[in-house]
Design a protein around this nucleic acid. Sequence first.
DNA 1: ATTTCTGCAAATGCTTTGCATTGCA
DNA 2: TGCAATGCAAAGCATTTGCAGAAAT
Lengths: 147, 147
Amino acid sequence: MQNTEEVLRTKKIKVTPQRMAVYSVLRDTRSHPNVEMIYKKLKPNYPAMSLATVYKTVDVLKKVGLIQELNVGEGGLRYDAFVEPHSHAYCESCSRVDDVESIPIEKIQDNNLFKKVREETGFTVNATQIFFYGFCPECQEKIEENV
Amino acid sequence: MQNTEEVLRTKKIKVTPQRMAVYSVLRDTRSHPNVEMIYKKLKPNYPAMSLATVYKTVDVLKKVGLIQELNVGEGGLRYDAFVEPHSHAYCESCSRVDDVESIPIEKIQDNNLFKKVREETGFTVNATQIFFYGFCPECQEKIEENV
DNA sequence: ATTTCTGCAAATGCTTTGCATTGCA
DNA sequence: TGCAATGCAAAGCATTTGCAGAAAT
């Protein structure tokens, strides 16, 4: 995997320790953290890091396409450095977000879905976002225990 | 179509003018308004109507299943009285939200998609939300004019 | 040297809350 | 009448902004 510094440089944005740190956190996890979670994770190693900087940084990373922003309803905005098209499962109990890779969005696109949407609505479509809402394995267990 | 008052009564919630008004607005439009839009629409006829009441009302209507809440990213929370499963197209320029009915979610469910998600992630899935992001016909024209 | 980023604090804006009053059942 | 909903103002929270100092190119 290309190192974080190189990746940022490729995108022609200034390379700062804060940006490397935020992007590294996102590259190293599959947990789709929100800004607060990123901040908490970084604080021990970067005591001077400001929450506002995390906000500004995810914004920059999003704009250059290094990360994607997920709007998961009550769970707020989450960030994901895995930018290949894929869908997500959201746990309505603990707000956990998992990747779903077995339903590849490319396949849906291949099925002429974008074209179909265009025919119906006149919209030109660039992207799609698919969410599955339900309960993660851990929360299912908890719910069963409480019966 | 059943009248608004009857529908509310069926759901065993208190029938008030404010609730009827909010629900009527949502039944009469396909524009997926947010709270602010609902409020503005009602203000001329209900000058005493408070924004807080609109917030509380959409919450109640959502809980009894009369409307659904759509989380459309930057456009915030939108409300829709059309609760049959369907997907949505979101205009990244003007925030307009259109229904997409030609891609029925039932069909996706029939394709064992929920089962597939469960096999991959362990999540039990109750619902899905599909968004198409792009530009609506009007905004496409505007963009072309400015070239 | 210049431009951009960071960190702080203040400001913003959307949403929620508390509570006295009103209104539905 | 009793309980729930409304409307107002205040509070709450996540996010954004302005700006002086710091850092990257």
